[in-house]
Amino acid sequence: MSTVTFDGGFADPVFASQDVFHAVMHALSMPGTVAALGERALGPLPLCAAASAILLTLADYATPVWFEAPDETQDAAAWLTFHSGAPVLSEPAKASFVLLSDTTDVESWDIFARGTMEYPDRSATLILPVRSIDGGSSLELTGPGIETSRTIAPAGLPAGFASAMAVNTALYPLGFDIVLVCGAEAIALPRTTRIKEV
Rank of each mutant, 00 (worst) to 15 (best):
L80N: 04
F6Y: 15
V167W: 01
R194Y: 06
G9Y: 07
A51M: 05
R194H: 14
T151G: 00
A162P: 03
T104P: 01
V65F: 01
I152Q: 10
E39D: 13
I152N: 08
L47A: 04
A164E: 09
L99C: 02
S90W: 02
S132K: 06
T169M: 10
A27M: 06
A36V: 11
F82S: 03
R122H: 14
L47V: 04
A53F: 03
T63C: 06
P154A: 12
P144W: 00
R150M: 10
T103D: 12
I127Y: 03
G32Y: 11
T125V: 11
L128D: 06
D177T: 07
S137Y: 03
F67Y: 02
P129A: 01
H22N: 11
A35V: 09
F21K: 03
P87H: 07
C48T: 13
D75V: 02
M25Y: 10
I111H: 03
D7P: 01
A188M: 07
R191Q: 12
M30R: 15
R122L: 09
F15V: 10
G145Y: 11
M30C: 15
T142Q: 13
E91V: 06
D177N: 14
L189Q: 12
A69W: 03
A124Q: 02
A59L: 01
S137D: 14
M1H: 12
P64A: 09
A62E: 15
F21Q: 09
Y172T: 05
L139N: 06
L171C: 11
L100D: 01
V20C: 09
G32M: 11
A153C: 10
T81W: 03
A59R: 02
L80T: 05
I195M: 06
A51I: 03
L171W: 05
D60I: 00
F176M: 01
P44C: 04
L45Y: 03
M1K: 05
K196G: 02
I152D: 12
L189T: 08
I111R: 11
V14E: 15
T63E: 12
S123A: 15
S163M: 08
I111L: 01
T33I: 13
V14Y: 12
G145W: 13
E197H: 07
A77E: 12
F97T: 00
R122Y: 07
T81M: 08
P154N: 10
P158M: 09
P31A: 14
T193N: 10
P154V: 05
A166T: 11
G8W: 06
E68W: 00
F6M: 08
D121P: 00
D60Q: 05
P158Y: 12
A11G: 13
T5S: 06
I54Q: 05
R114G: 07
G175K: 00
